[in-house]
Design a protein around this nucleic acid. Structure first.
Lengths: 260, 260
DNA sequence: AAAGAAAGAGTATTTTTTACTCAAACTAAA
DNA sequence: TTTAGTTTGAGTAAAAAATACTCTTTCTTT
């Protein structure tokens, strides 16, 4: 990785940016996934062990902010129809890339004035997204060197206030999981109840009684039992389920308030 | 009211704006109060029966967005230390004052180019504020002709998407009232339990059992009984309470989840 | 074939919510 | 001064939800 990354597309991006995008405004997406029993976020990193940033971008002059967020996410993950929700704007006066990113660019010989517009103060609108890791195909963009799924509890050093943005998103997630779609979007198509429980436990940050979780989740009748069982496990084969495809989304918020 | 309103201060404001404020960005505050058993919002109206807008303003180039929101609110209400919280950015591509406000300005002979920067596309960051109506002293600003407390269920015609912004804020309020500070900020210093109940009922939009409400609110031990009783009422004199001054705010979120 | 381990199922207790009833206290009308 | 009307304050009983367990089943590994 290195010099050849910051070539034409990136320079072109910088030159065009001033014309195409609204000044002082950006979008940053906290893309969550659940993998190996851990909560992950999608990050792009400037080189191995380098500074990391969220999946971000800018807002076209004639583009809705939600449109922009979807475009940015599609560019990075290849996914359309993502669960994507705005959650907070971050707007401290001293929020600017300058200090951290400018040296990086200079290392690669980018002329300073090409990136001038990017060095201004930026107010960023934070979105959070829920994806299934196994369906995602991360694609580096013009500004992104390496894309990684990082354990949310073991983040690399983040640029600016990005660690703070992730933290806010995570707290929101814990609130929102009581209102459904979260689990649908993060779990694989088929899963066992104990697997679902670990999702809840990692998001809520505490353990839940096994029996009670099962009881509650079944009573909510949001799950559909499959014929198959999960084989290969070390012990008794657990039953596989999937979310009932009927009430695909909004239909029954609050049916499973998850007040454990 | 009329011509003399759009004079020096307003023109000066327009001229300066381009220099002082970030382009394409505004702040709009939904200021809630509870008065006569009704939920009210602070609006400024262009003339009697005219178009109404939220208490809004712009973000200084070196100003945090929270700072800006506080400044704007202080300018209008004279209050400092307001409960003020960002809740959502509104950013449709066609969000612009132009169509609705430009004609108003032209009526008053404002040169079109003075207001040019204001006619661009704006992304607005929505805040909601909670105030005690009786402590507020609304002050018209450079852009605001008349300030009124409007019943949220009987709004005048609102400019742009401002009705939508109010609606979002109200929905949020209903969610947040389960997490405390809301009632503290909206109720007068002293109040009776039935009065508190009507606040909950109007915010939640449904009726609550009298006895159960009282039981729950008392068990949360957030109230302090006063010696006085509320006199003058048509019937049995209800006991006066105030919020326990100790845990003034954050201290015990969630103690009163209000799951009616 | 037996041991270990997790899943599935069930029970019992406590807490919270919901739906009421009844007495007390005050005003206004008789 | 008494009485009717109305709202507050207080309490009870039943239903639902949350919590804390135990026991059985089923699978893998030894």
């Amino acid at each position: 990785m290195a010099k050849e990354f910051f070539t034409k597309p990136f320079l072109a991006f910088l030159e065009e940016g001033k014309e195409k995008y609204l000044p002082h405004l950006s979008i940053d997406c906290v893309v969550f996934a659940f993998q190996d029993g851990k909560l992950k976020v999608l990050l792009s990193q400037f080189g191995k062990n380098g500074l990391a940033v969220l999946a971000g971008g800018f807002i076209g002059k004639e583009e809705d902010i939600d449109e922009a967020a979807n475009r940015i996410l599609e560019e990075r993950t290849g996914l359309t129809d993502i669960f994507l929700q705005q959650f907070q704007a971050f707007g401290l006066a001293e929020r600017r890339f300058e200090l951290e990113i400018l040296p990086e660019l200079q290392k690669f010989g980018i002329p300073e004035d090409s990136a001038e517009w990017m060095m201004k103060r930026f107010i960023t609108i934070g979105y959070y997204a829920l994806v299934r890791a196994e369906e995602t195909n991360p694609v580096p963009g013009p500004l992104t060197q390496t894309l990684i799924w990082s354990d949310i509890d073991d983040l690399p050093i983040m640029a600016m206030d990005h660690a703070n943005i992730i933290d806010s998103a995570r707290k929101l997630l814990a609130k929102e999981i009581g209102y459904q779609p979260v689990a649908q979007r993060l779990m694989p198509k088929n899963f066992t109840i104990p697997e679902l429980q670990t999702l809840y436990e990692t998001i809520l940050g505490r353990s839940i009684d096994r029996g009670n979780f099962r009881k509650k989740v079944l009573k909510a009748s949001i799950l559909e039992k499959l014929d198959k069982q999960k084989t290969g496990g070390a012990h008794r084969a657990p039953q596989l389920y999937r979310f009932h495809p009927d009430h695909s989304d909004e239909s029954f918020h609050g049916q499973m308030k998850m007040g454990f």
